[in-house]
Design a protein around this nucleic acid. Structure first.
Lengths: 197, 197, 197, 197
DNA sequence: GATGAATGAGTTTTCATTCAT
DNA sequence: CATGAATGAAAACTCATTCAT
């Protein structure tokens, strides 16, 4: 039982790594198998097809992001603090797991996404939407569509991490500026309206 | 001469359309050729390989964006106005040319990008960097790395257009909120420091 | 002992059913196993290989046909009556056991037949040959090769049942005609020559 | 133009030969290609899939049988003579083209048949049905369903040729008996009823 | 004996690229 | 230059068979 779960995870990780480095094109089942240390046919014990494998990785990454960020969310704090924690932790997850970041980015803009995958609920998306909904409910942020809010915030986090990676050594000064992005976004979404009693 | 250019462009447009709809996977040379109304072999008169074709499309799209946005830039205006024009026109280009938007998005996150393509200068990137550099030079925006500025602004524009497309009919109110994003970003990057003489 | 025989028979029946419906191609060991409610590996306890399994089904079906027809043969009757009983009972067996009919038909024209299987004695063929031999010995039918006689009679029975199945509802009149076939064949093979004492 | 037709035919003949000898299982595309002297991929220029190839062979064989038998049919003769010509020529075709005979037999009892192929009109079946219909129309044979008649006659011809092939050397006497089969069938199907004026 | 995950050779099919016409 | 048939390497996937548990 343990072994089976491990082997499935082993294949997921192996494919994740390969796709991050080589793209979907450059990651045939044969390479994924070799990388995972199993026979090519064995992949089909755990995944019905290559597409199912890729959707499986998407689900796996989504769960990991959700676990990382939600575990570190403290609902007892005020929403502003929770927002900056969200930003910091999501950023950190990507920095600690560059392969998952790379995969996620490719996936979201690939034809694998938007076909079938969007029909299934995504734990991370749902958690993220709920997070922003609670901000709205508490009157901490403007009454916007939480889905839109989540997409905008998440795509900015994504961009920031990409920039950090590409410019890592070049400009120490940048990080300072990049940290500012979160504050900027916060200023944009926070609810300024005076509460009426 | 005219015909050759036309045929090359015809192949580019045909491939562009197909890749937007079907992705890189679903766009074999044979389909591109059929869609363009030429023989498969003829594509190799204009492009050395499929990879060259894809890089060619990237260059083509980059030129189109650059032409659209730079043609509508009025350097005599103050930078704030130019910034909002930039935002409006880049957004409009994507809305008018969804296939080019779709291709660009896929390309940027694919292994085609970041390998060889980033070595070559990209007219749009260069123009965009220069645009923000001039804002810095004029003291209108903060003294940040203009490359980073451009990436952040452009990825937000990209997100906003995607959201508009996906939520088109659903929420009339959203567009209002989405228009706010540009103001928000502007607030974040404009230079507030008092000028000292 | 009982269980072993039951399990072997269960696999045979399961494979029989599947091959009738899906053909040899569409009947991998894994499906046969699932259909029989055993593990794939267990099939190799009872059969050395897939080919042995198929030859085993052939033997099984042959025994069933032989048992059905021979049990209902009454050697005390005159040969003409026995012939029409043979025809009726073989026909009825196929009608009662369509999967066995379907398998048999496929098998006889497949490469599984004619390779190795024809070397082994087949109880049904032998009984059928003996049946016609006894007709010859009694002077009831012409002095032909009984093997040929058996093949001709059996292939006509096969055709008649197939036609019945395919045209079942369409033409009530046909059955009458089809019953005539047996009389026709009998007229052709009965020995008309006057017996000389 | 000529070459293309030739190559298609060459692939058909090559596959026909192989399937006759090795069955559908033992005839992978790679072998068919090697046998035909073309690359494996080239098969897919002429046939969409292996199934299409097999259906193509079926159509090819059907056309050949129809051409051979119909070319030798003389409609000016009385129907009895035409019937014996039909029998003789169909028999001869199978004897001259054993690979086509072998393929046809396998095909008819395979899952390839009865799925899709039966929906398409088959030139040979149609000609054969029409042949027996004309015998009925002329009052030469009983008023039966011509489809059933054709199936019965054709399956007897098939059996006879198979027997001839298998017992070729063994019994010279048999052929005499086998020739009798056609007479026997004729006796069974001819219309004995006195014509009433 | 029973199990079913693991294997890997073998199968069908695709597709970028070439080249004779 | 244009064509599109031909190529064959490589891809996804299947499945009979084995073997550790």
């Amino acid at each position: 039982m343990e072994n089976l779960l491990n082997k499935r995870k082993c294949i997921l990780e192996s494919a994740l790594e390969l796709i991050n480095e080589q793209g979907f094109h450059g990651s045939p089942i044969s390479k994924v198998a070799k990388n995972a240390g199993v026979a090519a046919g064995s992949i089909y014990t755990y995944f019905e097809s290559k597409e199912e494998l890729i959707l499986g990785i998407y689900e796996y990454v989504s769960q990991n992001i959700k676990a990382y960020v939600s575990d570190r969310d403290d609902e007892t704090l005020d929403f502003k603090s929770r927002f900056f924690n969200y930003w910091k932790n999501y950023t950190r997850f990507y920095e600690l797991n560059p392969a998952q970041h790379g995969f996620y980015d490719q996936f979201l803009n690939s034809p694998f996404n938007s076909e079938s995958s969007q029909q299934f609920p995504n734990v991370w998306h749902e958690w993220s939407f709920g997070f922003f909904q609670s901000g709205i409910d508490q009157g901490a942020i403007k009454n916007m569509n939480p889905t839109i809010l989540a997409i905008l915030v998440n795509s900015n986090i994504n961009s920031v991490v990409k920039i950090k990676n590409n410019f890592k050594a070049k400009l120490a000064r940048n990080n300072v500026d990049l940290e500012e992005i979160s504050k900027l976004i916060w200023e944009g979404i926070k609810d300024d309206k005076p509460k009426v009693f």
